[in-house]
Design a protein around this nucleic acid. Structure first.
Lengths: 211, 211, 211, 211
DNA sequence: AATGAATGAGGTTTCATTCAT
DNA sequence: GATGAATGAAACCTCATTCAT
């Protein structure tokens, strides 16, 4: 009598590795490197503790992979929409809208970026390829150049600093979500509040650049 | 007969408490709640471990005191400069300059605020008085009202969102110091870079508001 | 009603440290650094695991202290008996007897010396003061000089190599106790066997030196 | 129809087994049973961990095979040179020279013998055939008998103890290589030092036996 | 007010071994 | 004959906290 094929596939390397990685993303972004124990990660992943070391070497190794995966989400930030004949104001509006949308959709990105800054770039310095130069900068520089050629902008504008201005305007709504409630009385979990912030930023920054 | 006061006071409660508090500020801001051990704090403070429990109850207690002390530094943020007849543009310029100056002088404030946001306001929720509403908001509202009355501003502007815009513009240069190096190629430790950022922000935001 | 004085003294630092040290001597000599776990040591010492780290820093720290204590037993090896007017042959006999007696009384010394040699002097290189130059060498050199002056020895004899010869003759009976049973059929646990070895060594080495 | 033999043999059982064995010899002799992990052995052997269990059952099994191989090297110790008409003094000189040469050429033998003694013959007791009685003893007994018959030796000499004396004299230079540097100031890695030791031993032991 | 000694739980990592293919 | 995946136990060490003085 032939032994029936076991329907439970027990050995599935990619699945185990993937579950560990997803648990890592979730927990590390929520509580930071020091706030998460290896035990918690493997419990959440539903696998043996030894497997983490098998696939990632150690806790650091998993953390680096988590950063790699989450920071790679940046590639999903559309930048093509800036090319060609887009009017300058519209370009600025699109960048701001793009950042708000991206940060809204990727809270783990916000958190991990903050953890990394608090750790003084501890892991980024060891693995510089994890976070590369933003491709938006070059597009923004083109936008600025075109606008200056057309006379819409009447002075020199450093694309890097302008981008930081745009980015910081959006980032604060997600990074400081909890303290803004206390200091500004704004509940940044409400879509309406975020929308108000985005629209004010669009209004002022477009005017300010083109004035 | 009263015991004569020993001129050599060996026990100096305030000194010990103060040293613990300063060690806590330094270490908690640098490495966060989970990244610091009680042993490290008392070693840095040069006192016995038991003293921490004597003065602050436990690790949490010290942490809360650290937040209290550091967040209280906000009171040093001069806001009087906005009163009276300051022109609108100048007011915006002063707020931006004030934030840059404050964040530059209080790196522990930046860090602890970030830790607290990453912890979803864990300690702030339990101790709401640690971080109160910014007094700048009301001053800014007055500035806006005056400007609208004079016709310098031709639309409704929410003071809270405007302040977030101003604040976020400054905060990003300190909170994301390490990742901006990778993504924007900006070294925010250099005074010149910070100065460029401040001036661009002043230029664009003043124009944008008054346009 | 006054609370009676607790007769059980619970806090006795020197006792705890001492028990840890004695457990270390016993276990490390019996099974080597790698063969013993911290848990075993503290169980044997009857104290908490944390105490080992409190008193010795880590496993290495305890091991070094163990070496220090056991190697210091060498100081008990009497060397005064060689001074003065002792005849040359008697001096050699005394050294051999002294070594046999010492090794017999200090089996942990034999073991730890062997472990250390197998580890290529790993700990000794880091702590050279643990094992200093044998004071017997100088005494033996005097013995040789006197004997040469008297004409009892008719050639140059290097005291260092002569001492190794004496020492090796004794040491092998303790270091190779288990394999000598297989290769030579000698049970070195029996006092009679050791006595035979000592007497043959005395006979041959005294004759050989003075011939 | 017979399946044609594949000329490219990918599976080479003896090669894998041999590599594991050589890795075992190298690592076990250098760091002892407890100091080596199965992972290290298979990494050094360049094969899969499962292979160790396939060929040797478990870690113990490999260790026993390692002892077998290394202890079998003893057979290479020439003893024929003692036969026949060799003068007594020359026989002693040859045994000493033979031991020095053998120990020099087989450092793993020295180490594994020491590990085994430190483990109180743990593996030898379970596998007594690993280390058999030295054939040199019988030859030495013949030498002694002949010498006594010729009147060169004027007293009873136990061949076993004499051989331990010869052996211990040589062994100490290799077993205690590291501690002799500290206690005697002798660097036993230098050929000149070993040569001095051998010659002094020859001088004294031949004289002492024949006196 | 201040201290050194002590604790149990939990931290990260490595161990020898076996499973399923 | 050979492999990568998986496991539970145990390794060394650190944690926040409390006790007895």
């Amino acid at each position: 009598m032939p032994r029936p094929v076991n329907p439970k596939i027990k050995r599935d390397p990619e699945k185990t590795r993937g579950k560990l990685l997803r648990s890592g993303v979730k927990l590390f972004s929520a509580r930071g490197y020091d706030g998460v124990s290896v035990d918690e990660i493997v419990n959440q992943a539903g696998c043996n503790k030894r497997m983490l070391y098998y696939y990632f070497g150690n806790k650091d190794g998993l953390y680096v992979e988590v950063l790699r995966v989450v920071f790679a989400e940046l590639e999903g930030l559309e930048v093509e929409a800036l090319g060609g004949e887009v009017p300058t104001g519209e370009a600025i509006r699109r960048i701001l809208g793009g950042y708000f949308g991206f940060l809204e959709k990727h809270p783990e990105f916000v958190s991990l970026l903050m953890w990394e800054n608090l750790h003084r770039g501890r892991f980024l310095d060891a693995h510089p390829q994890l976070l590369t130069k933003s491709p938006v900068i070059d597009r923004l520089r083109e936008v600025i150049d075109r606008a200056r050629a057309r006379g819409e902008i009447d002075r020199e504008v450093d694309a890097r600093h302008l981008l930081v201005l745009l980015y910081g305007t959006c980032f604060i709504y997600y990074s400081n979500r909890y303290t803004l409630r206390h200091t500004m009385g704004l509940d940044c979990r409400k879509p309406a509040v975020l929308h108000e912030g985005l629209e004010l930023a669009r209004d002022i920054l477009v005017r300010g650049l083109l004035a």
